[in-house]
């Protein structure tokens, strides 16, 4: 129970920090919302990582949701922001359901590459069809009403900040419950033994499809929120580098617990802000170094470190990362 307690305190402290920072320094609202969006997207990517699968294309769902929001907001400017978000998530779920049917047949590198390929097709098509998508310049989105109320820029951002924070907390809890449910544990079983899943009467593809749908929806939500807070969507929100950043954050934070996604996103945003202020031009290098250090020093990510520190933590999972798929080399 001690571990759960720690995470609760961590969540509350983190949330308060987000709110206080956001209200005290209005410029920090956007980076905080963006960080939370990265965290939400990473929740989805972390689910795939628990199944041992790395997708270098998940940002496509942020892209699909973001452009859905943009198209709808431009076609019907009176549509409420909440409806736009729901529509964006719906579109990404729909796309995830269809793409999922195909990609869950693949594992490892092929799973990663197929997702990458599909996202690259989407990315390049959006970039080229200027007339519809605005090409690489993207599409502007005028500030919509939220729950029927019109806001000034500052008010809009504050509402988005609070809303995103609440969504992040709610989804974090939900995803953590999913990780520990029968379905979520079976998902983690895909990483270690699909043959056994099959001989338990379960379809590994179905289990992975469920997780995939989940992850597509989460990344989609982050994309919809991202589009609204930026007031702009560009193809870059679906680039493979963005997908790589999600995986990066998932590793950085650790996928042992849902909160890892947000801890990872916080560190990620801080490195980015720090680099933007003091080391312009080498922020990717800083990220790369951070990632290498994490992999070498704490392969279970920040969450793994925290769990090790708290003495009463149950040694449920020695390390979601540390062990390679164990091969049984023994013969009779």
């Amino acid at each position: 129970m001690a571990r759960l307690f720690d995470i609760r305190i961590l969540t509350i402290a983190g949330s308060l920090l987000c709110l206080i920072l956001g209200l005290a320094f209005p410029w920090s609202k956007t980076p905080i919302i963006v960080g939370l969006c990265f965290g939400i997207a990473t929740l989805g990517v972390a689910a795939m990582v628990r199944a041992g699968q790395v997708s270098f294309g998940h940002a496509m769902y942020a892209c699909i949701a973001g452009y859905t929001v943009a198209f709808l907001a431009r076609a019907w400017p009176q549509l409420d922001g909440l409806l736009l978000i729901l529509a964006g998530v719906g579109a990404s779920l729909f796309a995830g359901a269809i793409v999922g049917v195909f990609v869950v047949r693949y594992r490892g590198i092929f799973f990663g590459m197929l997702n990458l390929a599909i996202s690259m097709v989407l990315y390049s098509v959006i970039g080229k069809f200027y007339a519809i998508t605005g090409g690489t310049d993207g599409l502007r989105i005028n500030r919509p009403t939220l729950l029927g109320i019109e806001f000034e820029r500052a008010g809009f951002e504050t509402v988005l900040l609070v809303g995103t924070l609440l969504a992040a907390i709610g989804l974090g809890i939900l995803v953590q419950r999913y990780f520990q449910s029968a379905s979520g544990e079976a998902l983690a079983g895909i990483k270690t033994n699909e043959t056994r899943l099959e001989y338990l009467g379960l379809s590994a593809r179905r289990v992975l499809w469920d997780g995939y749908l989940f992850s597509a929806g989460l990344v989609g939500l982050s994309g919809a929120l991202f589009a609204l807070v930026q007031g702009l969507v560009t193809p870059d929100i679906g680039s493979w580098l963005r997908s790589g950043e999600f995986v990066f954050i998932a590793i950085l934070g650790g996928s042992g617990h849902a909160i890892g996604a947000f801890l990872g996103a916080a560190v990620f945003e801080l490195v980015k802000l720090f680099a933007a202020a003091y080391m312009t031009g080498i922020w990717q290098m800083l990220l790369g170094i951070t990632l290498i250090v994490v992999i070498l020093v704490a392969p279970e990510g920040i969450v793994g470190l925290l769990m090790k520190k708290s003495a009463l933590a149950t040694p449920r999972r020695k390390s979601p990362w540390g062990t390679r798929r164990e091969e049984n080399k023994w013969t009779p």
């Binding site: 031009g281 080498i282 990717q284 990220l287 790369g288 170094i289 290498i292 992999i295 392969p299 390679r324």
Partner: peptide, 21 residues
């Protein structure tokens, strides 16, 4: 000896570093 996912990510990290370099 680490997870294949981590091996892939290490090369991604190297890519990020080289890109800025």
């Amino acid at each position: 000896d680490k997870d294949p996912v981590l091996q892939l990510l290490v090369t991604f990290a190297a890519f990020l570093i080289f890109e800025d370099l």
